[in-house]
């Protein structure tokens, strides 16, 4: 009971501090901008710990953060093997293949207006469908190992990428294209010097959406069958054994990997599209 009251008191204190910080005079500085969400996150974690201990919740319902942290620290090798199987092989492999394939298709589609007008509606229709559902079929075709996971990821990222790149390649004005023509630029010169750079913000938008989709695809595909490693495999078997601390440990790894993946793509975007209004600071 004391722990619950402590949790509520902590919440009240944190909230007052945050309100003070957010409405104070130094609210605009980057330190406060970083400090406020950090404080919020840490308070939530602490409250989680206190409430779980206070109510003495069993581990099969909700493990405390300290137990999860212990598990992450204690089973490093297992987590690393799973990470390698699911993220490095399944998600990244599929992501690379899918994005490259979408890129080449987009260049091809862009050359013929007829093809573009036909493929774009079909592509955006397919991009809205639950493509994860193809996982059982692809597992049947390509076996249990990471190849089938990569195939699911390829299908998941292909259409959002295609739609984004094709839209991006259209994002030049008539004036700019005319200018290239007065320079007597060939098709390829126009593509590489004008239209691809202009498409970069769209391409990166697609790459960022796809980075999340790739993680989801690789993990969910493992629910349909996998060798005895992999994050999705570990999650589904640990859930079966009611070892929820292991499940949470995998989720922590998945969350870190997902954010890092997204962060890296966003960082490259900032370096390459520094000229775009959305990147100006």
């Amino acid at each position: 009971m004391i722990l619950i009251i402590a949790a509520l008191a902590l919440w009240a204190i944190m909230w007052t501090v945050n309100v003070r910080l957010a409405n104070g005079e130094s609210a605009g500085t980057s330190t406060v901008r970083l400090l406020v969400p950090l404080l919020f996150g840490l308070t939530l974690l602490a409250m989680w710990e206190l409430v779980v201990r206070g109510l003495e919740l069993p581990i099969v319902i909700l493990p405390a953060p300290s137990v999860i942290a212990e598990r992450v620290a204690g089973s490093g090798p297992t987590l690393w093997v799973d990470f390698k199987q699911t993220f490095l092989k399944g998600a990244l492999g599929g992501y690379a293949i899918g994005c490259t394939a979408a890129f080449l298709t987009a260049i091809l589609v862009d050359r013929w207006d007829f093809l573009r007008r036909g493929l774009l509606p079909v592509g955006s229709f397919v991009a809205a469908l639950p493509i994860v559902g193809t996982a059982p079929i692809l597992v049947m075709w390509y076996g249990f190992d990471w190849h089938s996971k990569a195939a699911v990821v390829v299908l998941m990222v292909f259409f959002p990428m295609l739609v984004n790149i094709v839209a991006g390649l259209q994002d030049t004005t008539q004036m700019q294209r005319d200018l290239m023509k007065t320079y007597a630029a060939s098709y390829w010169q126009g593509l590489f010097k004008l239209r691809l750079p202009a498409a970069m913000p769209f391409i990166f938008n697609g790459l960022k959406i796809s980075s999340t989709l790739a993680m989801i695809g690789a993990i969910v595909a493992e629910f349909f069958g996998s060798p005895i490693v992999g994050m999705g495999f570990r999650i589904s078997t640990s859930v079966g054994q009611l070892a929820l601390d292991m499940v949470w440990a995998e989720i922590v790894v998945a969350a870190l990997a997902g954010s890092a993946f997204y962060g890296v793509v966003a960082l490259i975007e900032r370096r390459l599209t520094f000229w775009h209004p959305s990147q100006r600071r």
Binding site: I216, I235, V247, I251, A254, G258, S259
Partner: peptide, 8 residues
């Protein structure tokens, strides 16, 4: 949004 929520 960058986290594979479906995993849970």
């Amino acid at each position: 949004q960058t986290i594979p929520i479906l995993a849970i």
